[in-house]
Design a protein around this nucleic acid. Structure first.
Lengths: 213, 213
DNA sequence: TCTTCGAAACGAAACGGCCCGTTTCGTACA
DNA sequence: TGTACGAAACGGGCCGTTTCGTTTCGAAGA
């Protein structure tokens, strides 16, 4: 499912040049003028295209945004044989990808748009669900290696890590250094409880468990 | 620092009735029409107020939003003597607060507005910084009890937990059951690595450490 | 192979409508 | 008499749609 429900499909001959020019212009406008300056009229002016041409192929501003986003390269998930390295590497490349390309601006705009458009919210939810599944495979691989407990919900862990990335994107904090990322990932993988050595380990663990239950 | 920079302060006699009516109307419009239907004109119509009256006291739509949000009750942080219970209780009450009052809609709108208004972004950043400090006190208390390692960055942990809450707010997933919240908190507190018993513990740990370093 | 022709996409312009932020009124209250 | 107030109107921008004349392209026919 996508956002292009409204497109004509019978007898339609879309002009590839025009479509590309519109997508190029949309990306440029978004980067240069930001989300607040992103309007169909601005894209049409920039692309030297008519508004009806845009509306013919994209039923909404969000659909155009989504197509622009999907043209961009995605960040893949590393497989180093160690979960912490995988997660840190993933966050590092995701952050730099968001920082150094237009992906960050575009994805931020998509999230913002989803707050006022239920259709965008649904599409975004489906998209992120798929991304979380991909990220979850890193955890599943680690589970197969014995690095992760068998009863861990890998999708939930992926959700937790992606949440960290989302809020840092939304709050202009994509410049975290590797140490911070590594600490964050470490908290998820190893937890924040003290190592089970300095005080008697059984005490620590049983004490935690007792109060939790 | 706040968003009310533009307000007149010399010789101004603000009408409390009018200001309250405007804030009430803003909250009502936001809840009923959503973020997309939230406009100064709509608030003015609803409050039977003139637009200049709103602009006299609030320099921007975001400033009005922020004032509406700050009128609302905040969620406090529990102190049960156990970190996992504290964090789960915090998330539970935060989610239900966001779900059952207008706080959720308003905070979502603030985040969305911050994506197109740098001033809002700055104020929101400062606000969340303060909230993270509060949440971090839960971790600091646990640290004092020995539940958390001394070198753990409590602000970063608070950031991680709050990120989870933010994205669930932004993606309409405030209805997570307590089990999910407890699992998520457990991943942060205890980590996702398997208990150091079933396979030889030293192997597991040294193998992880070797590859990480 | 070349020409013709109609369908469909195109750019440009204009429409009514909504909201922006501001200005100008007359009014009510201290 | 000050000042805040409401109502109304301003120019401007963007929305999504409609109408216009033009261009492009593929299929039919010579």
């Amino acid at each position: 499912m996508g956002l292009d429900q409204g497109r004509r499909s019978i007898g339609a001959r879309r002009n590839p040049d025009s479509a590309d020019a519109i997508l190029d212009a949309a990306e440029a406008v978004l980067v240069e003028a930001g989300y607040s300056g992103f309007s169909i009229e601005a894209v049409a002016r920039r692309a030297r295209a008519g508004k009806p041409t845009i509306y013919r192929w994209w039923p909404s501003k969000a659909a155009l945004l989504f197509d622009v986003y999907q043209r961009l390269k995605r960040v893949d998930h590393p497989d180093t044989g160690n979960l912490e390295d995988d997660l840190v590497g993933f966050l590092k490349s995701l952050f730099s990808h968001w920082r150094e390309t237009s992906s960050g601006s575009i994805f931020r705009s998509l999230i913002a748009e989803a707050q006022s458009d239920a259709t965008v919210a649904a599409v975004l939810a489906e998209y992120t669900k798929g991304r979380h599944a991909h990220t979850g495979q890193m955890i599943e691989r680690a589970k197969a290696r014995g690095e992760v407990a068998a009863d861990v919900d890998s999708t939930l862990v992926a959700d937790l890590v992606a949440s960290f990335a989302w809020t840092h994107l939304l709050t202009n904090r994509l410049d975290e250094d590797e140490t911070t990322l590594r600490k964050t990932v470490g908290y998820v993988v190893k937890g924040i409880a003290p190592p089970a050595s300095s005080p008697p380990a059984i005490w620590q663990r049983s004490r935690r468990r007792r109060i939790v239950g």
